[in-house]
Design a protein around this nucleic acid. Structure first.
Length: 211
DNA sequence: AAGTGGCG
DNA sequence: CAGT
């Protein structure tokens, strides 16, 4: 009998990993980066349906998606054509501290969840990260701003899930079996934090793409 | 289906 | 910290 506290092997949650000062520094880094790499609206393959978050990236590669070519990593911004801004040192440091992986991440996706992004604000449906060649490299995630409910299930869709509320400054690592598990952001508690300019939640997700 | 929305 |  599985207990309700049984998260998948390889799932790790570090509450309040970053101090308020560090959180502000990370938000300032996002603010600076998105002046040259502005947030864009990602769209589903084939249907062109918009995702409710808006996105940008740090790093030598960035995750993008559009109707025509779908999910992929690209070295340049889809609108400006410019390279993505470099990964902030604080994030490189975090990866070295928690990832337990020999290579540094090429990609850091910036997802901005806003109250305006849909009926209950922006959310993220159940999915598995599967656009990386480095399928076993950990995914390292940082939460900033409004709290969110993160859900993680198993390797197949539709099974039971576990939930954990993520606060600003929290870090989550998906390694091992958890790296291949479906996960989602089922709810954001909008209006609880004033950290993010114009409100909402910023999620930074570092990934190793190439082996 | 990395979609949204309404219903029960 | 589970709705289907």
């Amino acid at each position: 009998m599985a207990k309700s506290t049984d998260f998948p092997e390889g799932f790790a949650h570090y509450p309040l990993y970053f101090s308020p000062e560090e959180q502000t520094a990370l938000i300032d880094a996002v603010k600076a980066a998105t002046q040259t790499a502005p947030f864009f609206q990602p769209r589903m393959p084939r249907t062109g349906a918009p995702l409710s978050v808006v996105m940008s990236n740090f790093g030598t590669l960035g995750w993008v998606t559009d109707k025509e070519a779908g999910y992929r990593y690209e070295p340049t911004h889809p609108i400006t054509g410019a390279p993505w801004p470099p990964l902030p040192d604080l994030l490189t440091k975090l990866w070295r501290e928690v990832a337990d992986w020999p290579d540094l991440p090429e990609a850091c996706l910036i997802n901005w969840y806003r109250a305006e992004g849909g009926k209950d604000g922006a959310k993220m449906g159940m999915h598995v990260d599967s656009d990386e060649l480095a399928v076993n490299a950990p995914v390292v995630s940082i939460s900033l701003g409004d709290p969110a409910m993160f859900r993680i299930g198993g390797p197949k869709r539709g099974g039971p899930t576990q939930g954990v509320k993520l606060m600003s400054g929290d870090v989550v690592v998906l390694a091992g079996a958890a790296r291949r598990c479906h996960h989602a952001v089922s709810k954001v508690y909008y209006g609880e934090s004033a950290l993010v300019p114009k409100g909402g939640r910023l999620n930074l997700t570092m990934r190793r793409v190439n082996v």
